[in-house]
Amino acid sequence: MKSSTHPYRPTRLRQGFERLIPKIVLSPSLVLMLVFVYGFIAYSLYLSFTDSTILPSYNLVGWRNYAKLWQLPHWWQAFRNLLIFSGLYISITTLLGLTLAIFLDQKIRGEGFLRPIYLYPMALSFIVTGTAWKWFLDPGIGLEHLMQQWGWSSFSFTWIKDSDMAIYTVVIAAVWQSSGFVMAMFLAGLRGVDGEIIKAAEIDGASTLTIYRRIILPMMRPVFLSSFVILAHLAIKSYDLIIALTGGGPGQATEMPATFMYSYSFTRNSMGVGAASAIIMMIMVFSIIIPYLYAEGRKESRE
C-alpha cells in the first residue's frame, strides 16, 4: 500500500520531504488537543490538591478538597440530581426517540417535513430553549396561566417553583431537546435493517409486534449503545440548560455537578473544591466512554 502510493519518481530529497508532509500537517491538531485536554486537565488535577481559594495557590494539601467535597450537602444534592436527571433523561429520550423513529419508518405522509421539525430542538441553543421553557412552565405566565384562562380554573402546574419537582422540569426540557436527535439515530438503524428478514418473518406469520421485539430491536443494539453513551455524556455535562431554565434553583434544588463546579470555583471562592468536583466529573465521563471505545475498537478488529 505504502509503496504503491508513490509510483512516480521525484528526486530523493523531494521524496523524503513529501513523505514527511503528512506527519507535519497532522501535528498541529495533535498538539492542540494534547495541550487542551491533558495539559489543562493536569492543571485542574493539580489545583484540586492545593488550597486554592479565590486565586490559585500551589500549596499542596493532599486529599483534603476531595474529603471536603463529599461532606458538602450541596455537592450531594448536585450528585443526586445528576442521578435522577440522567436516569430519567436517558430512558425517556431513548423510548421517545425510538417511538418517533418507528412512526417515521412506516413511510408516513410528510416524512421529509417532520424530520427536520423533530430535529429542530437539537439544532437550537440550550440557552434559548431553556429560556423558552422557563416561561412556558412559569405558573404566572405560561401553561398554568393559559389553562386557567381557558376555563380550567383548578389547573395547577407549579413544578418549576417547587424544590421537590423542579428537577423534573429540567428533564422535560432536556427530553424535548434530544428526542428528535435520538430519533434520527434510530431511524438510520431501522432503515439499515435488511427487508428480506422482515419479509421472511411476515411470511412465517409473525405479528408486527413480534417482528419488532424479536428481530428488529435486537439488531439495533449498537444504536442503543451509542445513543446511551451520547446521552450520558450530555447529561453529565449539562450546564447551559440548567442556567437558562432554573439557574440551579429554587434554592439548590436543580444544582448539577457542572453548575456546582462553577459556583464553587468562581463565586464561592473555593477553587480547590471546584477543581476536585471537575475531576470527579471527568472520571464519570471516562468511565462511560472508555468501555465504549474499547468495545468499538474490538468490533473493528473483528471485522
Binding site: 485536554v37 489543562f40 486537565i41 462553577y262 466529573m281
Partner: peptide
C-alpha cells in the same frame, strides 16, 4: 476528547 466535560478545563 470531544466528550470530556468542559468544566475540566475551565479554571486553567
Amino acid at each position: 476528547t470531544k466528550m470530556m466535560p468542559a468544566v475540566g478545563a475551565l479554571i486553567p
